[in-house]
Amino acid sequence: MLQLAEKPAEQFMLSTETFNQVNDILRDLVTSTRSDFALFCDANGNPITHHGKQHVVNLSGLSALAAGNFAATAEMARVIGEKEGFKFIFQEGDRRNLYLCNVGFNFLLAIIFDKAVALGLVRIFANKTVENLKGVLDKAAQAEKKASDFIDSEFGLLLGKELDKSFSL
């Protein structure tokens, strides 16, 4: 069985079942910490799912920045000789704080919470959430279907037409 959380992979296939389980875990996290928002994305910057108040509009942008930030910070850890990397990234704002940590090798969890919520509380629930997410991802076999099941020559043709339309070529 493929371990989604740890195995480096060129292609990720996330099944609906795993997606729903991840959603439930994020909902629990946001409820129990009374956070504003939690985002689950992959380490390459693809957003997967989120839960909470919708004040973050550009989810793809946030995911790309979270992944870039996390990778740069991991490299900073290496440069100063922290072999295991940093456990999390914390940023304090005027009204809201950001907590960012990895979920295994391939995924990231970002939590945005009000200044009134204690960091210690977020840390404890974030750690628990990471364990739960790893459990779900490690048990999840990659979804049965392969990309080539739907990305066939017909898909290529239709996509070409769609691009011509969108790009007004």
Binding site: Q11, F12, M13, L14, S15, T16, F19, N44, G45, A147
Partner: peptide
């Protein structure tokens, strides 16, 4: 490539 079957999304990185 990241395929999310629940949302029926295919993410490609260029």
């Amino acid at each position: 490539m990241f395929v999310n079957w629940a949302l029926q999304e295919v993410n490609l990185k260029i």
